[in-house]
Write a protein that binds this DNA or RNA. Structure first.
Length: 883
DNA sequence: TTTTCCCGCCAAGAA
DNA sequence: TTCTTGGCGGGAAAA
């Protein structure tokens, strides 16, 4: 397509009057507006021109419209007569038109709302230009011309252009004129956005919001208002989180006017929205959360229902454009409250910031196997890095330019942001040793050292990777090769282990002994699963009652569903989940259980496979929800193939893979825990790549219902009771597949272990945050470690746009940030609940997950506490079944 | 009923 | 003052 488009693309300047480079395929055929005068760059086009296009737009037509409005019959007649002839130009509209015409209702004959949707309009708009235009040519776009061609008001074109501009697919050239860049800058832009998002810790914000929502849902907190959801800590810490418009070199806004309203600009909102995807692990963002975050950034005080609704509207506008760009797709996240609209990122995977994160370097250095493990991850080429770096630098330059040339309005927030960035960099550079933010929660003296370590997840990861990478990696590789796609990825192990070790040690030390919380959770029982041939054993914490069977991967599966269909096992709706669970619990023992299933892996793959190909679809479906039974089956098969895991279905529980690698952190964790003194054999948790599966990153949480997790986890974590070990199954594959999981797992494990042991209060969480948005890491990892196809597909797609970062990875887990969420000793109930997020929620349970405080140690990469622990998939699993 | 989001008013700014 | 931009929110179609 692209090529084709490109080939067909005519040089705008050669087209005479046509300033807009139209795609030959479509645009050429479109009747050009009669004569769009060739406006000079600065000329102001006159609006009237649009009228020329069609009857509907002529005064007469308008009059008719008015009349018809009063008289449907007239309208119908007119319409049938050809009122919509113009619309025939549009394929989609055409089709629907035909259908409509058959009917007599004028309504039908009229273009349906859908036909007038911004998304469709955007598609039409995009059809006019090649995805990768010849930059040497003049690719000017005249908005009036476009509006005329598409027969829409210019206002609508602005909406589209603003979003495209946010992605630097177009840039404003002059009044009424834009230059089409296509996707040439897309990857670079996304990279910059991701970088910015990480700096702003959007992942954390997402987590916090989810936590709050969860809390609110259960009235744990006294009614919180939307404002309450807003993450303020970021602001506090780094100043305003506001990102302002991220620019790329040469793409600065040229009109002051543009900057004037920038703060609320659709562009900025669009960028932020995209950032959320780039930073969230599941890469699923609900509009609600996005709106809250965006609102929060604006001004808390502005958050009222009306504003919120407006924000949502705008987000829909943006989402429609992004969908047209194939960057996101709509999905639904099921929560206790019901289905929530959300969007899933299906665009190119973006690697972590090259320049900022050393991790990246490490990634590069690291053999493919290591970090990324088996994943066929694409490694950055030096050139790529350069580009990214440059882009990033440019971006930063633009944002905080010292050059003096103010490209856009600068806000204090920007300054703050710059500072924070610098600070982060510094931290990163000094990494392990450098002191990092101290966790608010943590008061313990010991914590300091750890925190510092945690602060720099990347550095840590890097270090760990280097240390551990050698052996394990090889192993992993081998395993992967053998096992197949889903096989557990060794790479993960390394990071995980490292993380675990760090976390464990740090946690234990820092946290010290924590009073056990008596709670229902105590009942949770950790089960150790026998190691699967290919995979490591898993330890699962179950609640005694639920221990019957383990939820398969599905349990892990995120709540997100494209379809409400219950197919997804795990389901989405809590209610459904409940019922399903029951059935599943008993019935699904093995199949679903598969370790893999737990996994988020599949999902990840799906997610990652963004290719538009089937694979991608498959992945997404899986990810989203295994909508199709077929896909489900397939998925299961894949998993099976990967490993045999005996699975047990647990209504709610946490599946912890035993460390695949002996050397892995699991041991370390155990040791640490044991050291702490409270450990019981049963409690031991091993870290394994798989773990990754279970834990959900904050980002994932986005899509997922946070609430559910918390509860469950809470129980699980807390439960001091001894556990029976049950072999569940191990699937490394799954683990591997999820990049994110990897990190999470470790943290999750650590948390669980600690909590279980009573070392730390439930409220306290140790998080291994993947980098700043956990997000970044996971995706890649997934691709890497996991399944073949996912890798293939994913990468393929990623490659397409940009080279995804391969190793990225920050080793996911590597970046470990241990944070005590709320203070270690949770005096308040809330504090104790932090943990919750990580796990499944139990129905009646208590659950007050309140405070999951997400203190992230540091910002930068930090992760959100709560999130980290959350199982990737929806935990719905646990939710209801418990009782 | 809720989700989507079209539509166009109207204000901020630029020309 | 006119015109471009684009924030904003009513309200209706779609789900």
């Amino acid at each position: 397509m692209e090529d084709e488009k490109e080939n067909l693309f005519f040089e705008p300047h050669k087209r005479g009057l046509m300033k807009t480079p139209l795609k030959a395929s479509t645009a050429v055929n479109l009747p050009l507006p009669e004569s769009q005068p060739d406006f000079g760059p600065l000329t102001t086009p006159t609006k009237p021109k649009e009228i020329a296009h069609g009857e509907p737009w002529t005064p007469t037509a308008n009059l008719k419209m008015l009349i018809s409005a009063a008289s449907p019959e007239i309208r119908s007649r007119d319409e049938k007569r050809g009122l919509f002839d113009n619309r025939n130009e549009l394929p989609e509209a055409k089709d629907s038109l035909h259908e409509h015409l058959s009917g007599d209702e004028y309504e039908k004959s009229q273009p349906s709302r859908k036909e007038k949707s911004l998304g469709l309009l955007c598609v039409k708009f995009l059809e006019r230009y090649p995805e990768y235009p010849n930059l040497a040519l003049n690719n000017d776009i005249c908005l009036d011309e476009v509006a005329g061609d598409l027969k829409v008001e210019r206002r609508r074109i602005y909406d589209i252009v603003n979003v495209l501009e946010s992605l630097h697919m177009v840039s404003r050239l002059a009044k009424n004129r834009y230059t089409w860049h296509g996707r040439h800058n897309l990857n670079q832009t996304l990279q910059a956005l991701k970088s910015t998002a990480e700096k702003n810790r959007y992942a954390k914000q997402i987590m916090m919001i989810k936590k709050k929502e969860y809390e609110q849902e259960f009235d744990f907190t006294k009614g919180c208002s939307i404002e309450d959801h807003i993450v303020k800590d970021d602001t506090d810490q780094n100043g305003q989180p506001d990102v302002c418009f991220v620019e790329l070199p040469g793409m600065e806004f040229r009109a002051a006017s543009v900057n004037s309203r920038k703060e609320k600009s659709l562009r900025v909102m669009s960028q932020k929205f995209v950032m959320l995807f780039l930073v969230s692990t599941p890469q699923i963002v609900s509009l609600e959360i996005a709106a809250k975050i965006l609102n929060g950034e604006d001004h808390v005080e502005d958050l009222n229902k009306s504003k919120f609704k407006t924000k949502i509207r705008r987000l829909y506008d943006i989402a429609n454009v992004l969908r047209s760009l194939d960057l996101i797709k709509k999905v639904h996240v099921t929560e206790e409250r019901g289905r929530k609209p959300a969007f899933k990122w299906i665009g190119p995977e973006i690697s972590p910031n090259p320049s900022d994160l050393e991790v990246e370097k490490s990634m590069i250095k690291v053999p493919a196997d290591s970090v990324s493990g088996c994943s066929p991850v694409i490694t950055f080429t030096s050139s790529d890095l350069e580009v990214r770096r440059s882009s990033k630098e440019n971006c930063a330059k633009n944002l905080f330019s010292t050059c003096g040339k103010p490209n856009f309005t600068r806000h204090q927030s920007l300054i703050k942001l710059v500072k924070s960035i610098e600070s982060d960099r510094r931290k990163i550079n000094s990494a392990p040793s450098s002191p990092v933010k101290t966790n608010k929660a943590e008061s313990s003296q010991n914590s300091a050292p750890f925190q510092s370590k945690m602060a720099d997840p990347t550095a840590i990861c890097k270090m760990q990777l280097e240390e551990q990478s050698s052996e394990p990696r090889n192993k992993v590789k081998v395993q992967l090769a053998r096992s197949g796609p889903c096989k557990p990825v060794a790479p993960l192990d390394t990071p995980v282990n490292a993380e675990l070790e760090l976390m464990a040690s740090s946690l234990t030390q820092s946290l010290g002994v924590v009073p056990l919380l008596p709670s229902p959770l105590s009942s949770a029982v950790p089960v150790i699963l026998p190691q699967a041939p290919s995979g490591p054993p898993y330890a699962i914490y179950l609640q005694p009652a639920h221990a019957q069977s383990m939820t398969p991967p599905q349990g892990l599966s995120p709540t997100v569903c494209s379809t409400p269909s219950s197919k997804a096992t795990r389901s989405k709706d809590p209610a459904d989940a409940t019922t399903e669970k029951a059935a599943k619990d008993t019935a699904k023992p093995s199949a679903s259980t598969r370790p893999g299933s737990l996994l988020p892996v599949p999902e990840r793959q799906g997610t990652k496979n963004r290719d538009r190909e089937p694979a991608r679809e498959r992945g997404s479906k899986r990810a989203s929800v295994f909508e199709d039974s077929a896909s489900k089956k397939k998925f299961k098969e894949d998993l099976k193939g990967l490993e045999n895991v005996s699975a047990t279905l647990f209504p709610s529980g946490y599946l912890i893979p035993l460390a695949q690698c002996p050397s892995l952190g699991a041991e370390s964790i155990l040791s640490s825990t044991e050291n702490s003194g409270t450990v019981s054999p049963n409690h031991r948790i091993y870290s394994s790549p798989i773990a990754g599966v279970i834990p959900v990153t904050s980002s994932e949480l986005t899509g997922v219902n946070f609430p559910s997790f918390p509860v469950t986890s809470f129980k699980l974590m807390v439960s001091p009771t001894p556990v029976a070990a049950v072999p569940v199954g191990s699937s490394t594959a799954l683990t591997s597949s999820h990049a994110i999981p990897v990190q999470n797992p470790s943290s999750a494990i650590v948390n669980l272990t600690l909590q279980h042991l009573g070392l730390i209060p439930p409220g306290v969480q140790v998080s291994a945050s993947p980098g700043p948005g956990t997000v970044p890491v996971s995706p890649r990892i997934e691709a890497v470690s996991v399944a073949p196809d996912s890798t293939g597909t994913q990468q393929g797609r990623a490659t397409r746009y940009d080279s995804p970062v391969p190793g990225h990875n920050q080793p996911n887990g590597q970046s470990v940030a241990v944070t005590g969420a709320q203070q270690p000793v949770p005096v308040t109930p809330k504090g104790s609940q932090l943990v919750v997020e990580s796990f499944f929620r139990t129905p009646g349970g208590p659950t007050k997950p309140t405070g999951s405080a997400c203190t992230d140690s540091d910002g930068a990469s930090k992760t959100s506490v709560g999130t980290l622990f959350v199982p990737q998939r929806k935990l719905e699993v646990s939710t209801e079944d418990a009782h």
